[in-house]
């Protein structure tokens, strides 16, 4: 269903804009999306590891505020998902790059549990950790360095067979 549309829309894309113009547009969109994401994290309180850990501390002094962050984010993102169904392609690319639907497997569950354990220990996950680098705090820089090392260790030692998708 998507295949003929993909090649024709790719031709339209190339006919209207040069490759360089499309890349510049993509870079500007990514920069703006990153800044809006980082501003959102800052405003939401998600940048603060103490509040993230407070959210996870359901048996203690539970801080429900991050449920509002997730709720607001999912609601708006859902609207974009619904809109996407009516579009043949995104504005600045020939096709949507969405992860393939694969079955729920051990890697997904175990990997997410390992991620969750680290998230709970420090109260930091990749987005807030990168954004918080701007504040120039040494523990955040250490966390980001260790996180990158963890990614490289995974890709070297525990990467799946070719064809695995990352979202």
């Amino acid at each position: 269903m998507m295949r003929p549309a993909r090649s024709s829309s790719a031709r339209i894309l190339i006919a209207q804009f040069s490759v360089a113009q499309v890349l510049i547009a993509q870079v500007l969109v990514a920069l703006l999306a990153g800044a809006v994401f980082g501003l959102g994290l800052s405003l939401s309180g998600m940048l603060d590891p103490a509040r993230v850990r407070g959210f996870l501390d359901v048996a203690g002094a539970w801080d429900p505020s991050l449920a509002f962050v997730l709720g607001g984010a999912v609601a708006v993102a859902s609207a974009a998902m619904l809109l996407r169904r009516h579009l043949r392609r995104p504005a600045f690319d020939a096709e949507f790059h969405l992860p393939a639907t694969t079955p729920i497997d051990t890697r997904l569950i175990l990997g997410s549990a390992i991620f969750g354990a680290g998230w709970g220990m420090a109260g930091l996950c990749p987005g807030p950790a990168l954004a918080a680098l701007s504040l120039g705090l040494a523990p955040v820089a250490l966390f980001v360095t260790a996180m990158l090392a963890g990614m490289v260790i995974h890709d070297r030692l525990a990467a799946p067979q070719p064809g695995g998708s990352q979202s």
Binding site: A25, Q26, V29, A30, L32, A33, G34, V36, F37, L39, G40, L41, S42, L43, S44, G45, M46, S65, L66, F68, V69, L70, G71, G72, A73, V74, A75, V76, A77, S78, A79, A80, M81, L83, R84, L87, R89, P90, A91, F92, D93, E95, F96, H97, L98, P99, C125, P126, G127, L130, Q166, S167
Partner: peptide
Amino acid sequence: PSLMGGTLIGLSAGMLLLLNGRVAGI
């Protein structure tokens, strides 16, 4: 502020998807 911040995060994800066709997964 949490709800507003979340809204901005959703807006960013929507923008990246509809304009660049990419998933905002950090």
